[in-house]
Design a protein around this nucleic acid. Sequence first.
DNA 1: GGTGTGACGCAGG
DNA 2: CCCTGCGCCACAC
Length: 106
Amino acid sequence: MDREEYVERVLVMVERIPPGRVMSYGDVAEAVGVGGPRQVGRVMSLEGGAVPWWRVVRADGGLPLCHDGRALAQHRAEGTPLRSPERVDMELARWWPPDGPGGGTG
DNA sequence: GGTGTGACGCAGG
DNA sequence: CCCTGCGCCACAC
């Protein structure tokens, strides 16, 4: 598993996240089956500009505004279930690829 | 090889 | 909700 391979998997995974839904860094890490939440976040900071990074949030629904308030604008535009002006309702927005244990969009 | 850091996650106070 | 401590893996010095 080269770094490019890992980066590719993470990026394609994030792109698979449908609008109005989100995945936590840990979920993406588990979905790709390699590395951990740190590595996912790392890839995002490097190549995240090519994917809907705002659909990737912290395990507690915290938005990555460490960059820009874009995330909030996007979630508001996509209709993501928010519990707070900058927090996502994980129990509602949490998504998992239909090719995994989730078995569906929820 | 050791130390410090980070778009993280969990548990305790 | 707030802060703190530990674990995690990879990168930079």
